[in-house]
Design a protein around this nucleic acid. Structure first.
Lengths: 200, 200
DNA sequence: GGGGAAAATAGAACGCGTTCTAGTGCTGAC
DNA sequence: GTCAGCACTAGAACGCGTTCTATTTTCCCC
């Protein structure tokens, strides 16, 4: 009875829970888009996703887990978009600055959403470390692609360092101590300092 | 009657409130030292400082304000300690690495406290931006002292970038995605990349 | 087709940051 | 002296993340 009537990859039940999971993340994103972190209230997420509060917590053991799942999706989308249209720039510094610049603009289009997701990323919630690593890996991948081919001694160190700067700048922006213009400036400065103007 | 019996700088009343403020911050630090952010509960802080909860909130309008006040104190202490015994190292990269290394060790001595303070620093709590700026200024001052005299094109950019890396690394450490050894490594890498081995 | 595990539901309950209310005492102005 | 104002106190109350309980539904295995 399992696969006979439904030629799907998984059982009907599994599909439903997958759909539920998707609805929960989608609901979180919708709420975050207007109102940011504090607008994502677990009762509201559950209601909008049409699941019980307990179900929400069964799948995402905390608000931060939920938002990190949303962030992983967004980061993946960002990576795809970057891969589609490779960065402009003759040298590694230029390409990297372009990537970070484009990413910043993309984020600034839905500031409340990004703010909410970054808050989740910097929150100390125990046992989210693996999810955070996953996201860092995606972001580093984006930078790695941009500097690919540059003739530098320690590309790994550069990527790590740029990744840190990116995160810190985002955090400062979320915290209200930096506007997007200063963000762009600081990111470009870091890329130039680390890759040098004219580095291959 | 005000200044006659008491040759102090301020009225007796003002001294008392100053003492109360000091007690509140001290209580927060004591609680944070064992147990970190979550152990700093506002009711407990008030009880330990022997003030009413309302008084605590009159002086520090949120838990994060309170912890940021504590962090400002700690950062100032760190700066003084650094000024007392200047960093070792023949070049700017070495001195900077030494400063960051020493700072890291100092922090690691009271991990729960520092974790609590860094959480407050990265929390998005509105209207704490000025306090955060103050702290960033202190930390940047420490780095500036270390690289003083180095012959580099954009010392300000280097300081800003290193400051970002420092914050991001601290955040990652607090979030459990980095241990102190990796912290040291990443900070040293950043200092080397930005200042170069043998700069100055 | 009956029993049992897994997953979902509705909703109460708890913890802690934060806010609010009512009342007290001190101080400085008139 | 008394009145206004301000800092403080004690404690109730509220909001939201999180946990818990009781119940129902669904699927799978025999």
């Amino acid at each position: 009875m399992t696969g006979a009537a439904h030629p799907d990859t998984r059982s009907e039940r599994d599909q439903e829970t997958a759909a539920r999971r998707a609805r929960m993340v989608a609901a979180a994103v919708e709420l975050a888009v207007n109102g940011g972190y504090e607008a994502v209230q677990m009762r509201d997420v559950a209601a909008r996703a049409e699941v019980a509060l307990g179900t929400l917590y069964r799948h995402y053991p905390s608000k931060d887990h939920l938002l990190l799942a949303a962030l992983a999706e967004q980061a993946e989308t960002l990576r795809e978009r970057m891969a589609e249209r490779p960065p402009d720039g003759v040298d590694a510094a230029g390409r990297t600055a372009d990537v970070l610049h484009r990413a910043t603009r993309a984020l600034a289009r839905r500031p409340d959403l990004i703010a909410a997701l970054v808050i989740a990323l910097t929150s100390p919630e125990g046992d989210t470390a693996p999810h955070k690593h996953e996201i860092e890996t995606i972001l580093r991948g984006i930078i790695t692609t941009a500097i690919a081919g540059a003739d530098i001694a320690d590309p790994d160190g550069v990527v790590r360092t740029l990744g840190y700067v990116w995160l810190a700048v985002l955090t400062a922006w979320v915290g209200g101590t930096l506007d997007t213009a200063q963000m762009d400036l600081d990111l470009t400065t870091a890329a130039r300092l680390l890759l040098g103007p004219g580095v291959e």
